[in-house]
Amino acid sequence: MNKHPNLLIVAQSGRLEYEAVIFMASLRAQSPDWTGKVIIAEPQPEGAWSGHETRISDPCRELLTEMGAQITPFVAHHFGAAYPQGNKIEALALLPTNEPFVFFDTDTVITGPLDGVAFDFDRPSASMRREGTWPLPPLYGPGYAGIWKSIYDRFGVPFDDTLDAAQPDEHWERYLYFNAGWFFGADPAEFGRRFLDWARALRDDPHDELACQVMEPWLDQAVLPVVVRSFGGGRPGPELAGLDGDVTCHYRKLPLLYALQSDHAITALEAAVAPNKIKRVLRDWEPARKLVYQEKGRDKVRPVFADRTGRTPERMIRNQLKAKGWWLV
């Protein structure tokens, strides 16, 4: 039996197919001993994606397959174009039942040996690289505790042991909140079924405590902590420090990579996509052509943020990039 879990990313026509090339190229370059399957879920232009061109282009498809990815089509029935983040929820059904899995957002670069991460699939977890984006408690309540507890209670999941006692009451970090950029579990079938059922329930029938909450685009992140806890999981421990650390980097958009991320992450990405067979495909994508191959990311974008201190909200960074004409996505 393969000792490595199955990896899942989602790709479709446009930006995601090029990010998938970066993901695969960096995985092969930085984690050459990785032997697990890499499944790329490809939504089809039907169902909830009807009317949209979603199929991966031939050049990207050929390159991804050459690098060992298994491109697997699926039809989205519940989210699709109305909520693209739902792809990751529905795509879990593609994975082999009862085989451990790790999901990554496609805008992730592998920067170190992924096989060195000590995943404990009996204790699922997810990325803590997030800001306090959800919920936004209304002035007259309920507060963070009331909103979060209402979701746990609705689905019969313990709540009190998810609290971080080191954080004060009603501070957003006291409550279990993940970025859905990576998460893992033991059985994608059961994990995905629960994720899908509960996400649809909150979307279609929000209870009273959610009346003032905007669920889009935060629906997946509102549900994920409750799903993780329902399987006995929680916050990632030190054994997972390489994720969002020395082993993976969730860069979100290429301009943000050059504005915010480490020299190590940038060097890993640039080295991974340097081979001519990858360059021939990626240079058709404007962000890669200008920021990576024409070196504008290093020469123009990075110097603007070289003196940045503290935790500047990502929204402000995006606005600066747009103002200077470097928001290439």
Results as ranks from 00 to 15, higher is better:
residue 38 V to N: 12
residue 205 D to G: 08
residue 222 A to D: 01
residue 66 E to F: 00
residue 39 I to T: 13
residue 266 I to P: 04
residue 237 G to W: 02
residue 85 Q to Y: 13
residue 224 L to I: 03
residue 201 A to F: 04
residue 41 A to Q: 05
residue 127 S to Q: 03
residue 180 A to N: 09
residue 303 P to A: 01
residue 68 G to M: 10
residue 177 Y to W: 12
residue 317 I to A: 01
residue 103 F to P: 02
residue 81 A to Y: 02
residue 66 E to L: 08
residue 50 S to C: 09
residue 186 A to W: 04
residue 226 V to G: 06
residue 171 H to N: 12
residue 134 W to R: 10
residue 73 P to S: 12
residue 52 H to Q: 14
residue 184 F to N: 01
residue 225 P to M: 11
residue 109 V to S: 13
residue 28 R to T: 03
residue 178 F to D: 08
residue 200 R to A: 08
residue 41 A to V: 07
residue 206 P to N: 09
residue 109 V to K: 05
residue 124 P to F: 03
residue 44 Q to Y: 02
residue 54 T to Y: 05
residue 188 P to A: 15
residue 205 D to A: 15
residue 184 F to P: 00
residue 215 M to K: 14
residue 300 K to Q: 03
residue 108 T to C: 15
residue 314 E to G: 11
residue 51 G to W: 00
residue 169 D to N: 08
residue 216 E to S: 13
residue 61 R to D: 01
residue 316 M to I: 08
residue 28 R to K: 14
residue 153 D to W: 07
residue 307 D to E: 14
residue 201 A to C: 13
residue 259 A to Q: 00
residue 266 I to N: 04
residue 34 W to M: 02
residue 237 G to S: 04
residue 119 F to I: 00
residue 226 V to C: 13
residue 114 L to E: 05
residue 220 D to Y: 03
residue 218 W to F: 15
residue 224 L to S: 07
residue 158 P to M: 04
residue 190 E to V: 15
residue 310 G to S: 06
residue 113 P to V: 08
residue 17 E to I: 03
residue 34 W to Y: 15
residue 55 R to Y: 00
residue 12 Q to C: 13
residue 40 I to T: 08
residue 246 D to V: 01
residue 124 P to W: 02
residue 181 G to Q: 11
residue 179 N to V: 03
residue 295 E to F: 00
residue 18 Y to N: 07
residue 136 L to P: 04
residue 296 K to M: 14
residue 39 I to L: 04
residue 106 T to A: 10
residue 284 D to I: 04
residue 164 D to L: 09
residue 125 S to P: 00
residue 99 E to F: 05
residue 301 V to W: 01
residue 239 E to T: 12
residue 313 P to W: 00
residue 161 D to S: 15
residue 314 E to C: 09
residue 292 V to C: 12
residue 234 G to D: 05
residue 2 N to S: 15
residue 128 M to F: 05
residue 177 Y to S: 15
residue 135 P to T: 07
residue 161 D to A: 11
residue 188 P to F: 00
residue 180 A to R: 07
residue 296 K to T: 01
residue 39 I to V: 15
residue 309 T to Y: 05
residue 163 L to I: 11
residue 285 W to E: 14
residue 115 D to Q: 13
residue 123 R to M: 10
residue 131 E to S: 14
residue 32 P to D: 12
residue 221 Q to S: 11
residue 221 Q to E: 15
residue 118 A to P: 01
residue 110 I to W: 06
residue 249 C to W: 06
residue 203 R to N: 12
residue 169 D to R: 10
residue 234 G to W: 00
residue 155 F to E: 06
residue 326 W to V: 01
residue 238 P to E: 12
residue 158 P to T: 09
residue 243 L to H: 10
residue 17 E to M: 03
residue 154 R to I: 01
residue 111 T to Q: 02
residue 301 V to S: 02
residue 99 E to R: 15
residue 185 G to V: 07
residue 273 V to C: 05
residue 137 P to I: 11
residue 199 A to T: 06
residue 207 H to E: 07
